[in-house]
Amino acid sequence: MADKILKKLNIEVWRQNNAKSKGKFETYTIENISTGTSFLEMLDILNNDLIEKGIDPIAFDHDCREGICGTCSLYINGRPHGPDSAVTTCQLHMRKFKEGETITIEPWRAKAFPVIKDLVVNRSAFEQILQAGGFVSVNTGGVPDGNAILISHEDAEEAMDAASCIGCGACVAACKNSSAMLFVSAKVSHLAKLPQGRVEAKRRARNMVAKMDELGFGGCTNTQACEAECPKSISISNIARLNREYLAARFSE
């Protein structure tokens, strides 16, 4: 489709100098943005404008800019990763916005993800959850041949579906309880679906859930907002599987 030019947009954005300071919204205008421009390129252009005007540019997280690293994390017009479906912020394009529109940009808001600066938050709580059990306990070397254990095509595909989680945190940002259940369940399911991960499945579920609770994420009340906003379409059926694994772990205690 041919690109058009958006003559003027208002960008209302959360500014907060550091974790301790109080933040507030500021509004900037930006002109002549092609609809073929990506959302983050629009922010680059705005930032270059701001720098030239002597205003501190807006800090936001990003790296791969192709929807796979999970770094980008903007809450745009009330939705994590903005108005398009099944994409990350960096894959969002300006063709999803209208001439003259005011676009509101906020950081992820969750107790477990404190703001570092502007739109950048600290997601190290996710790291801690994975460190609590999101792995298979094998060392390098001494493992069997890759084809020694057969895995059905379907199981491999289902494991892959769950393993597609990019750890962005949109599920937490979307949830009114700031629950991390979708994220945790994706890792638990990925590994539980494979024979290599089965061995430690119960312990993994128990330890990861305990860590999640400890870090201040809320409980899951099944609102399904997470699934709707997940850029990788991770299914909430994973949460059901996590619950099963978790119960099994509790019963076997």
Partner: peptide, 21 residues
């Protein structure tokens, strides 16, 4: 060895219907 190692870690490589890589 790399493939074996990754499989053991739970890397969900594509599989044929018979279950082989």
């Amino acid at each position: 060895n790399i493939i074996d190692q990754c499989v053991a870690q739970g890397v969900p490589f594509a599989r044929e219907y018979g279950g082989l890589l």
